[in-house]
Design a protein around this nucleic acid. Sequence first.
DNA 1: TATGAATGAGTTTTCATTCAT
DNA 2: AATGAATGAAAACTCATTCAT
Lengths: 201, 201, 201, 201
Amino acid sequence: MSAGPRAGARDKRLLILQAAVRVFARQGFHACRVSDVADEAGVAYGLVYHYFPSKDEVLNTLFLERWNVMLELIREVDGEAIPAREKLAAIASFIVDSYRHDPELMKVIIVEVTRAANSFGNTHLDTIREAYDLIAGMIGQAQEQGVFKPDIDARFAAMAFYGAIEQLLTGWIFGLLPQGEEHFERAKWLVVETICGGLEE
Amino acid sequence: MSAGPRAGARDKRLLILQAAVRVFARQGFHACRVSDVADEAGVAYGLVYHYFPSKDEVLNTLFLERWNVMLELIREVDGEAIPAREKLAAIASFIVDSYRHDPELMKVIIVEVTRAANSFGNTHLDTIREAYDLIAGMIGQAQEQGVFKPDIDARFAAMAFYGAIEQLLTGWIFGLLPQGEEHFERAKWLVVETICGGLEE
Amino acid sequence: MSAGPRAGARDKRLLILQAAVRVFARQGFHACRVSDVADEAGVAYGLVYHYFPSKDEVLNTLFLERWNVMLELIREVDGEAIPAREKLAAIASFIVDSYRHDPELMKVIIVEVTRAANSFGNTHLDTIREAYDLIAGMIGQAQEQGVFKPDIDARFAAMAFYGAIEQLLTGWIFGLLPQGEEHFERAKWLVVETICGGLEE
Amino acid sequence: MSAGPRAGARDKRLLILQAAVRVFARQGFHACRVSDVADEAGVAYGLVYHYFPSKDEVLNTLFLERWNVMLELIREVDGEAIPAREKLAAIASFIVDSYRHDPELMKVIIVEVTRAANSFGNTHLDTIREAYDLIAGMIGQAQEQGVFKPDIDARFAAMAFYGAIEQLLTGWIFGLLPQGEEHFERAKWLVVETICGGLEE
DNA sequence: TATGAATGAGTTTTCATTCAT
DNA sequence: AATGAATGAAAACTCATTCAT
């Protein structure tokens, strides 16, 4: 069951990715140097270029690996025969759990990619859009089924839903909202309840 | 009808600010050079530094001048004796109109400041937080009055509300949502209806 | 006996020169801006260019006005029929008194001109050399008269003499030697006694 | 006879230092660009910053490496049981030889550091002072032993002595005094003879 | 005389990337 | 795979000087 004689080879790559998450989260992508990442990983910075063609590519990798997992989840949920509210709840749950599991990675993805309209955001626009579209599809379906109000454009609703969740994460990232197991769980319910049920009595 | 003998004095400063909005919006704050701003404004390089101590300060000025107008609006709305839904509607309306009036400025504020957790976002955190707090206050009050459900933490609800709006703007900025007078007006209603009334029938 | 209606005109020039002395002494010629001088003088910095063609010219003026007074003194002393030791004493006395009277001006002259081999020192080389030459002449004459030892090259001796004095001023400027009336008077005697009489018993 | 496999590693650093001496001496520290140094050394721009954190630090290194050698010499001399005149002669000899061996380095040290009251001189004040203090100590000791006159403050005498030597170097640097083996040797004797024996017969 | 807005050349420093070992 | 010396393009910022008023 040993990982074999070459087990360490790929380890360095992972080490670099994990170090990049910490450094990007701490200093921001632009404000950190490749050598900062290498230092954090405990390797020479030339090695970063052995595994990745550029600094950009490190961030791209980080983003794609995570975002694709989410897309996968959304697609799965989309295929299930459950109420729209439960679908949205599953998505909210996944995103909140992602933050709970690796807040630094989520911070990097949100701050450096998802919202970076002039750099990485644009690069990954199609990938990002796919998530919004899938959610919009769920909402549209629910409207057709008469579960959701028909007069709210599904694409706008999808953006509002996703924006609400992302802003909760932003609140945690900026230290504007309280964190902790309890809050994470409650946030999952809260955002769905707000969007689906509304704030009003 | 003359603007007076020294009308042109401050004009260059304004010219620079307006040029900065266009350039920051087009290229992003980091990706543009100070000379790009100067060129866009049609002034010499050094004049930017005559009016602003640094490139950062240009962005700070842009953000603060606009954000303070919004804070003013929120405070005013907060003081009025109107239903919570109308208060939130007024805020949503103001933000959407801000985008309609000067989409480039709003793009810059959202992309470069509001969401820049490691740079300007942190610098202006207290100013940004004030808006969230005011909105949370409105929601909390509505909860006390029995108009809003009491079991949704007001701070979280405020973040969700603000995040929903900002994400609509983000959708427009990224070209993910359709724009135009009709859509802007509809978006104002939609976001409030979603957050207050919920998506569900 | 009034200074007349245009008395103030030249005053500003003087004001600027005096301010320049303070600023150059405090910050160094290179480290200060023209506007620092203007601020110190309480005038707009454009006015500096009304009276002087350049920043350099301000320093040149400062140097020449003072150095020429010294040259005058040296020439006078040179023409008198007094012992060489008294001539040197008169020069030492003049330089020390110059420092006592306006230490900042002397600091500027020494630090920024006399010792600046690559900038002002070179510009004023001939003017500076004239002083050394005159002193060398005095010493040479004393050697011919059999008062001074004949085997010490007069030019080298002149440099040593001048260097000794200037280093005392440097000591005061750097805060390495004690200052005060008593010390100034004693320094005059000391430097001459050392150079002429020697340190040895 | 090979210098070893990695002999070249530190060579570039030395190359840069040597180039810096030439460029600083020729143009002056302020008047030259870092690229001038790099060009002179035949290396790329950035390599200077690979070895030194700043342009300033290059000069600091140059100064300290040389000045510390002199301090070492002075300390050694100070510990020997020889007449004060011989001690001073050893110091004068060392300084003159330093100039003879590398006139450009000595020019840089004197012009840019030793006499720069507002920049490097201040930075290295304590290091510079140590030399003066050691010399003053020697003179004070000679006074206690009755070899030197007791009424000349040792600190002032030390400054005069050092100033006399430095001014000879300044004379060479400015081209005011004749250079050459003979003159260098004679200068060593001359400055000591002047300071210790006096100019007078 | 006096002001300070306007100009723009010039310089240090940073850092992603390459490459010899 | 791993290292870090070497490269050089790029950009913020400074400040002497000009000039319209």
